[in-house]
Simulated scan of single mutants.
Amino acid sequence: MEYTLFPLCEYAVTVRFASYIDEAVNDIVHETAARLQGERKEGIKEIVPAFSSLTVYYDPVVAGNYADVCAWLRENIGSTGQAARHSTRTIVIPVCYGGEFGPDLADVARFHGMTEDEVVALHSSGRYRVYMIGFSPGFAYLGGLSPRLATPRRPVPRTTVPAGSVGIAGGQTGVYPLATPGGWQLIGRTPLRLFDPHREKPSLLSAGDIVEFRRITAEEFARWREEHDDGRH
């Protein structure tokens, strides 16, 4: 696949493979990121994959200037062709839908002319790909939402969305790992902690993972919290 290089700032280069979101393109992004990690040279600080591009952050004092880093990229990207399928993890996320945990579920159901149970059944039957992590620490942008559930964002964002909230915005679904402002339509909440700075790997999800949602009851939600809560919120 063809690609283009351009400077994101004075210490970062972006490699763009396409201008659209596509699973095959995202495979190439992650395969290339893994290849660059394997050939990482001194001064390369971070390699960040996104939907259809990746960005390489570097120390210009150590790695060289923009032209030097571009030369290293061209040497190691080469002709990408079709990306090899890399191993993926499947993460099952329990979700309590509706009620206090999903205050917008009824609105989403009305918008689509469905019952709340139909929305939940459709949402929890999908398999979702983590295309990238962004917005806030550990926030995963998931692809694979059924077009039948695509719903506009709220006209007025909430000033605080509780951590663990599961939402829909346009053609995407996602989980808020931290309590932040947000305008997504909230349909449920998970008791899982998706981001914990005390863990060796703070973010539960990584780009390339597959996510499945499993419906649980409010009682199961409370029991999960009691069994797994270590006092950090």
Rank of each mutant, 00 (worst) to 15 (best):
L54R: 12
V175P: 01
G99N: 00
F6G: 04
Y131M: 11
I28M: 03
E10N: 12
F221R: 05
Y3P: 06
C70N: 09
A67M: 08
L205E: 10
E219V: 06
G231R: 06
M132T: 01
T90E: 14
G208Q: 13
I133Y: 10
A179I: 05
H123A: 11
V61G: 02
R89N: 11
D196G: 13
G38I: 07
R199L: 15
R35C: 08
D209V: 03
L205P: 07
P191I: 07
S79R: 15
H198F: 08
G81M: 02
S79M: 10
R127P: 12
V48L: 14
L54M: 13
T32E: 04
G99R: 00
T55W: 04
G182F: 09
H228A: 12
R215S: 14
A150K: 04
A179S: 15
L186E: 13
P202G: 02
G78D: 10
P155A: 10
A169Y: 02
R85D: 15
H86G: 12
D22Q: 03
W72E: 08
I168E: 02
T90C: 14
L8S: 12
P60Q: 02
A163R: 11
R85K: 15
R189E: 08
D117C: 01
T32A: 13
V108Q: 01
T180C: 08
T180H: 04
A83M: 13
H198T: 15
V56M: 09
A12W: 03
K45Y: 03
T115K: 05
G38E: 06
V61P: 01
Y141V: 05
R85S: 15
V13G: 04
E2C: 02
V130Q: 00
T159D: 08
V48N: 11
D107S: 12
I216F: 01
G134F: 07
G188K: 00
M114P: 02
V120P: 03
R89F: 09
F213D: 10
S52E: 02
D22M: 01
F135H: 09
R127T: 15
V130D: 01
A18H: 08
H86I: 12
A109M: 07
P7I: 03
S53I: 08
P147M: 04
V62D: 00
P157F: 11
R74K: 15
T4M: 10
R89G: 09
Q172Y: 11
K41D: 05
Q37Y: 00
G170W: 03
G183A: 05
L8F: 11
F135L: 14
I47G: 04
V166P: 04
E220R: 09
S125V: 12
A140I: 05
W184R: 03
I28W: 00
R225E: 13
K41R: 15
I91R: 14
E42F: 04
G38V: 10
A150Y: 03
G81Q: 02
V211D: 00
P155E: 09
A109Q: 12
M114I: 01
E116L: 13
P162V: 01
Y57L: 09
D196F: 14
G99H: 00
F17Y: 05
